[in-house]
């Protein structure tokens, strides 16, 4: 479904992504893990069209989308849920969710309303606070709102950037289970970028470890969880994991 070939991205003089290659099948949950500065967020940003790739290609359903901008990516169904949730804090929960369907509301408003109901079924907590400003929600609720907003865009590929950031372990568990449920029950295709390696790999089908802009280890999540190098990396020694 999504194929990334030898992807390079620069931030100014900084060579952040240094030849990324991976493939993603429909309905798959791929976890991309790694330490700070490994290039995880830049990878998602490049896939979402926020950053322009210096070279390499991104193919979606066998079509080259490398040079598409964010609006085109969103229209294609490649949706990013950005780091730190980025809730519209002064807008209500309902408005936040509706903004998720911003690009397609005019031509598809009937389905948007159906999906709005589905998102509320998935996150019943949000149902009780539809009129509350997004900024007044707890961290976990904001993350649910951010995912809900992403789902309102009718994603073909949903990309989440560190959804567990700053959340209590129990909430993280809830969020991860929801992501798994999205894949199992709705056939969603998800790329999950996480520093919380254990939590991410527990729900993912496959995983990649990113270090210095390169994928240094990849495999099924079971393989990765039992890999001693990953375990070392998980405890902060990414250098040791470099193959």
């Amino acid at each position: 479904m999504l194929k990334v070939n030898n992807l390079h991205t620069h931030h100014g003089y900084l060579h952040v992504l240094n030849g990324i290659n991976f493939e993603l099948s429909e309905g798959e949950l791929l976890a991309i893990v790694g330490s700070n500065g490994a290039g995880k967020s830049t990878l998602l940003g490049t896939l979402a069209g926020v950053y322009r790739a210096s070279s390499g290609s991104i193919e979606y359903k066998e079509k080259d989308i490398t040079k598409q901008n964010v609006q085109r990516m969103v229209s294609s169904g490649i949706i990013l849920v950005p780091e730190r949730r980025q809730i519209f804090s002064s807008l209500s929960v309902k408005d936040n969710l509706m903004l998720g369907a911003y690009h397609r509301y005019r031509r598809d408003h009937k389905n948007v309303h159906n999906e709005y109901e589905e998102v509320l079924e998935l996150f019943p907590r949000l149902k009780t606070m539809l009129n509350r400003p997004g900024g007044l929600l707890s961290g976990g609720e904001q993350q649910m709102l951010a995912i809900g907003r992403g789902l309102m865009a009718n994603p073909k590929v949903l990309m989440l950037d560190e959804p567990s950031l700053g959340l209590a372990p129990l909430i993280v568990k809830d969020i991860m289970q929801i992501l798994r449920k999205l894949c199992d029950e709705r056939g969603a295709t998800i790329i999950l970028v996480e520093q919380n390696v254990k939590a991410a790999l527990k729900v993912a089908d496959r995983g990649c470890v990113l270090a210095h802009g390169q994928i240094v280890i990849s495999g099924t999540s079971h393989e990765l969880l039992n890999d001693p190098k990953v375990q070392e990396a998980y405890f902060g020694k990414v250098e040791a994991a470099k193959v």
């Binding site: 979402a48 926020v50 964010v70 609006q71 969103v74 229209s75 949706i79 990013l80 849920v81 950005p82 980025q86 809730i87 519209f88 804090s89 002064s90 807008l91 903004l99 998720g100 911003y102 690009h103 997004g134 951010a146 907003r149 992403g150 865009a153």
Partner: peptide
């Protein structure tokens, strides 16, 4: 509210 999020939803 948030330029990053607005960008992400296709605004």
């Amino acid at each position: 509210g948030s330029e990053i999020a607005a960008d992400a939803v296709g605004v």
